[in-house]
Nucleic acid binder design. Sequence first.
DNA 1: TTGAAAGCGCTAACAC
DNA 2: GTGTTAGCGCTTTCAA
Lengths: 337, 337
Amino acid sequence: MVTLADVAQHAGVSASTVSYVLSGKRTISAVTKQRVERSIKELGYHPNAGARALASSRSNIIALMMPLRTDMYVPVMMEIAIAVATNAREHGFDVLMLTGEEGPAAVRRVVGSGLADAVILMDVELNDARLPLLRESGRPAVLIGLPAQTTGFTCVDLDFSEAGSLCAEHLAELGHREIAVIGEAPAVYERKTGFAERTIQGLRTRARQLGLRVLHRPCEGTYAAMAGALGQIFTERPGITGFVVQNEQAVEPLLSLLRQDRRAVPEDISVVAVCPEQVALQGSVRLTSVAIPAREMARHAVDHLIAKIERDADDEVFLLRPELVVRASSGPAPVGG
Amino acid sequence: MVTLADVAQHAGVSASTVSYVLSGKRTISAVTKQRVERSIKELGYHPNAGARALASSRSNIIALMMPLRTDMYVPVMMEIAIAVATNAREHGFDVLMLTGEEGPAAVRRVVGSGLADAVILMDVELNDARLPLLRESGRPAVLIGLPAQTTGFTCVDLDFSEAGSLCAEHLAELGHREIAVIGEAPAVYERKTGFAERTIQGLRTRARQLGLRVLHRPCEGTYAAMAGALGQIFTERPGITGFVVQNEQAVEPLLSLLRQDRRAVPEDISVVAVCPEQVALQGSVRLTSVAIPAREMARHAVDHLIAKIERDADDEVFLLRPELVVRASSGPAPVGG
DNA sequence: TTGAAAGCGCTAACAC
DNA sequence: GTGTTAGCGCTTTCAA
């Protein structure tokens, strides 16, 4: 194994000089710098990560804690994870992947051992058990999601309330007067991550202002559940002409069942989704939707985390502005009835 | 920060004793052991990861290199990644997530710096650029996928050839005589990961033995592409009564278009998929399918990698036996025509 | 602009 | 069954 000492000897300088060439923490004459860099290349030197971490008390590793449930929001999570890793590399950091499996203790472990310099938490719940541990660890942390109590943390999330509001507005503008919201599965609401609640609340508030009538139904993403929900909805409110869906899995079942029901989209029924771009684009109908901006969230999370690590930046709450993109699934409310 | 020396002092023993209590590498009397463990608890001691890595030349970290393309096989990849992480933890290892972004050099970096003790490569291509680098690094590695040249590596993959064979068998047994295979998008074949080719080859071989006529069409996973392909297929071979699909995205479009076409599944047309269990279960029809056993692959990969790290185990090629599960999308070939 | 040297916290001989 | 101690390879004062 090639060590820094080997490089120093080969270049005819001291170890510290090599170290400083690498870190750039002090000015080095052009000649020595070149000599050192040449030696590094020739010897194929790679600084030892462990030694570095020990001497500098910095691992240059960020821990990313994945959600426990691997069955939900998979594409978004994956996109965030990859974007976090890519982004972190641009700042010279690597990413350690933690699963929910190990529980909140995982946070203590990686942070207590100095394995990770900082933590990103995905899929944060309103009263997340990991937060107290993180807080007492004193390590920089960024949450993706919005817990009940944000003090001590930087949070990044989509402004779901505004997203709901945009959906209401869009349908109201198209002349719809009565709409239904197909929500996440009941389990999601029970988990209290808050985003589903914020969406419906934002939607309801705006709907009230616009005189839009709203029926909200949480729903499993299966054909059977969707069929049941749809039947009930049209029975209760036959005048409904618009749907807002916030449930990846439910999108195709909904479209498929409407088709079967001989209700044309968007002529008879308008559909607006809150979902990853991918889902909105690849289905049987290109959906008018509010996207969940995974990469942007990851970028904010990493950038701010690095700022906290390196410049002790302050905590902030970033609520990203949602955008509604009009596609083929929404149109004017049918006239008459 | 609490160090091992602090613990030693607090427990009234030497540093090495504490170290040995932790590692279990030598026998310690019950009393000292308990005293040490008590001190560890009381002081809230966490061994420093960097120091450990430096002293032992072992980081207890496995690097997991994700596929470059984040748009394909997302659920399987995510499932594998999480299973790898969970499994690794059971052996006391953490997982570092590398994206394709950084290119093959990422391998050299994490391995050269001693950041990772070993590597798992996902989505391996037939002539993968990362393999030579890995080979010369001499670090233990496991590939998920099957490259052209496996020497020096342990490989884990589904036996796709056998999977194709099973599909042919199943349809033949049901009396089908003419089938179509909807394959992955052309881009997948161009990337030369080999699995798509192995599937069709295994299927073809068995089909020939069984007197089954096969038409193979790679296909994008969009409604438009699927509609085009389907039209062509039925024009060319009006006698087709069975479909094998190996393309997650194409499953729903296919089912939907068949329905629109008034071809009932499974009465008129049988459909067999090679896809993740999740996809087979959550669509509009519960699909007869051969599952891609993500967790099992991850388990094999991790277990064998650990065996290589700790016991210098030999390289092996694990081709997991596929299983075809009969569900609601396949049935006897229609009589007459 | 550079060098010397003292650790960082742990492991693993080597001693007894 | 336990203690002593020499590193592991790097960063960073301190000194010149």
